[in-house]
Write a protein that binds this DNA or RNA. Structure first.
Lengths: 335, 335
DNA sequence: ATGAAAGCGCTAACAA
DNA sequence: TTGTTAGCGCTTTCAT
């Protein structure tokens, strides 16, 4: 392995000078030494050891990103954007999938801290509030909550404006004459985005003087089978809904599969609006009306936020709620 | 920040002993000190600095994963599985998306080496063969090529058996009476999987004494619009294909969108087989016949391979080709 | 069964 | 304009 010492020897300068060169501190450096160093580095194919430099500088240029599951295209897109931005800033990302399992999340937080990451972007499972509060927030560790808040905890948050987004969907259905609207969501278990979407749904109904019928709300296992089960339940009701709002793209997959299998026609038999304008919603037939999240903006805002936090940590906490957009397609109809 | 020294002071032992404790070297350790250390760690909420330990041990417990794009559900599933396995082994992953841009890939390799990752799982863009050869392979750096080989370079490889998989698809179409079969793929530009699939396609045709008509092969930009363009080209031919084989799930998306828009019916007007049994192919109507890659096995094999390479580096290179599976659905028909 | 001391590769005062 | 020196937090040899 070739180290800074080897370069120093080869270039006939001290390693301090090499270090200065590597860190772009050219202020007082003579042109000739600069050239000699450059050549030595080239000749030796030297690559600075970032672990050593991290130890010394107390900065790793690494951001931890903790999400539920990278197979969810929403998170995939978020991570893609985030990594791209961070790459340009010479930062790397350590990716952690928790599967919304608090035990895994706990271990992820622990090791990310042990690895001295400069900051964490966290989509929490909701099951580690104490740890997050004690070991991150109270210690002023640079943290940005993404997509989900932690109940009762003050921290920077970057997320979709779930109330606005839900209203967008509900408004659309309402204006098309729908009054019995079913809602499908995942077990809330402390996941704020899910709770907020349900609450907004209920609030909307109340504001529009529609009876809130608890049987129109299904919440269950957030996967494809869950979606099937949910839509089956809702459509089996005595008085079934004319429209369905799926708040999770993963559920939507199951909903569509179920409707196809049962030959229930969208939108004639039932209208559908789904959260997340993921890339496949326009290839199902008919293409789905969707609430699009501003994923790139979420990624940008999260990274801005974490870097601000890293730089000075005395600012008040921010809450950045970004609006969703309604993409109208043909899965909804007027009745 | 609390360090190993603080724990040593608190537990009234030397930091050597603490270090032994942290590394599970209990052999000669008295029960009483063990307990005192445990308590001190607990009291101080001490978390070992992994950067320091990495520097000393020359091992980071970090694997770099370089892929083209995490938004491709194939890679998302691969990374998900890989991260899950590595997590259990107390390893973390640094994720790098290159977008198949060799410049980005080069920088990723550089920084991963600088960060002293213990190994790299690489899906190469095909544009950095020299770098890969000189800085990784020749230096015996633990490397596993995933999904794509590097032409002319000897290294461990874990990938789909592209010939077998392509044959599976072609056999299926052939047995259903198709003789004019169109192939859609992305620009090959050194990406071996794409080349292998085209070659297998041609080989199959020759073996079955079917004229290979170059106009039935479309290769272009590997995205949704590419898919649209490709299917449009192929179906506009004088003598259009009766079946289409899409070797890229991203292209398939565009193909389906195009066919829906033009109201061309699958499988009556054209049959479709797609590579990658990604989660949405069964929700399009009709559900798509797909070649399923053994993603979990690919992830397991890659990780086995990289750890073997890390442990002893004198073994001959392995080439692990895993078979695909044909999932028959209703997007193909007999003619 | 435990500790002292050297050192991993780098950076940053401070000195010259 | 450059170098000397101490030290980041840990592990490991060697000693006891």
């Amino acid at each position: 392995m070739t180290t800074i010492n080897d370069v120093a020897n080869k270039a006939k300068v001290s390693k301090t000078t090499i270090s200065r060169y590597l860190n772009g501190k050219y202020e007082y450096m003579s042109e000739s030494t600069k050239i000699r160093i450059e050549k030595a580095i080239e000749d030796l194919n030297y690559r600075p050891n970032l672990v050593a430099s991290s130890l010394k500088k107390n900065r790793t240029k690494t951001i931890g990103i903790i999400i539920s599951n990278i197979e969810n295209p929403f998170f995939a897109a978020f991570v893609q954007k985030a990594e791209q931005i961070l790459h340009k800033m010479d930062n790397n990302v350590i990716l952690c999938n928790t599967g919304d399992d608090p035990k895994i999340e706990r271990k992820d937080i622990d090791t990310l801290l042990g690895r001295q990451v400069d900051g964490i972007l966290l989509t929490t499972s909701g099951g580690n509030n104490d740890l997050i509060n004690n070991d991150l927030i109270k210690k002023d560790f640079p943290l940005v909550l993404v997509d989900r808040r932690v109940s009762g905890l003050k921290a920077d948050l970057v997320a979709l404006d779930n109330e606005q987004a839900t209203y967008l969907a509900m408004e659309h259905l309402y204006q098309n004459g729908h009054r019995r609207i079913g809602l499908l969501t995942g077990y809330s278990a402390g996941i704020s985005s899910r709770i907020e979407r349900i609450n907004a749904y209920k609030k909307f109904l109340i504001e529009h003087e529609i009876d809130t019928d608890q049987s129109l709300v299904w919440s269950g296992v957030p996967n494809q089978n869950g979606g099937k089960e949910g839509v089956n339940k809702l459509l089996s009701l005595q008085n079934p809904p004319t429209a369905l709002l799926s708040t999770l793209n993963i559920l939507t997959l199951g909903i569509i599969e179920f409707l196809n299998q049962k030959n229930i026609k969208i939108p004639n038999d039932v209208s559908i609006v789904t959260f997340d304008d993921v890339y496949w919603v326009k290839v199902v037939s008919p293409p789905l009306t969707a609430i699009k999240q501003p994923i790139e903006e979420l990624a940008k805002a999260s990274i801005n936020c974490i870097f601000e936090r890293m730089n000075k940590n005395n600012k008040p906490f921010k809450e950045i709620l970004l609006p969703g957009t309604l993409i109208k397609r043909s899965s909804t109809r007027s009745i």
